[in-house]
Amino acid sequence: MVAMSSRPLDEPVLRIRPRRGFASLNLGSLWTHRELLQRFTGRDLTLRYRQTALGVIWVVLQPLLGAGAFSFVFGAIAGFSSSGGTPYFVFAFAGLTAWGLFYNVLTRASGSLVANAPLVSKVFFPRLILPCSTVGSSLVDFAVALVMLAVLVLIGGASTGWALLTLPLWVAVIIAQALGIGVLLSALMVRYRDVQYVLPVASQLLLFASPVAYTLAAVSHRGRAWLQVNPLTGVLEAFRWSTLGGQEFPVSALYSAGWAVVLVLGGFALFARMERQFADVI
């Protein structure tokens, strides 16, 4: 307020003009509105844990049940093996923990605009805040699962070492990839609601096209080449390399990291381009 009154009166604070073409990403607005970002994140967390009876237990139970199912189907029936002597169950749990982070950020971010339609059409704030605010609650879920993973690793006796220090990097790559796609899908969903029906099917396919239930090493040579096109493949392998240890560093993780940058920049840019129509269409 004080700063404002010292400004010359004949200088507009803001000029509104028609916008065409690509707008700037306006990442600075995320920073100036960081309190709102925190507020939305806090709301998501409160609601998620207040409304469910078991609350935080679900967060652990989900990947546990998933890993159990994977162990039975792939481990016991199909006879898949894990890498480097880790029990298959722990191996699958690690994969599902990383996958869960990707999947949660992706689905929560992509539904965020439509879920908050009244806000989008009635209040001004940088729209990018809505998809970005979903990262927080997914990260908390992930942290809980990670503690469980640590327990399993200690029991299972995996050979984790200094590679663990690189874990934040792989977490960042997973979030960046999921957020890039999620931000783009959230904008598309404003206009085309059928995105929300396609998404579960598509992510199911992606789950099986990614090395979650199996290692890349277990795949035939030709299949491996195809799998490595998938941007998730490298980072999932790297996630297990850093948490479970006992294998060589997957170089394809760098390919994943490259994709993360492309997806975030591309997703945000397309979002900024579509953003100005949200209030009129939603």
């Binding site: 200088e11 604070v13 000029r15 509104i16 003009r17 028609p18």
Partner: peptide, 10 residues
């Protein structure tokens, strides 16, 4: 967003 014209807010 407007289609034409401009608005200055002080």
């Amino acid at each position: 967003h407007p289609t034409t014209g401009e608005v200055d807010l002080y």
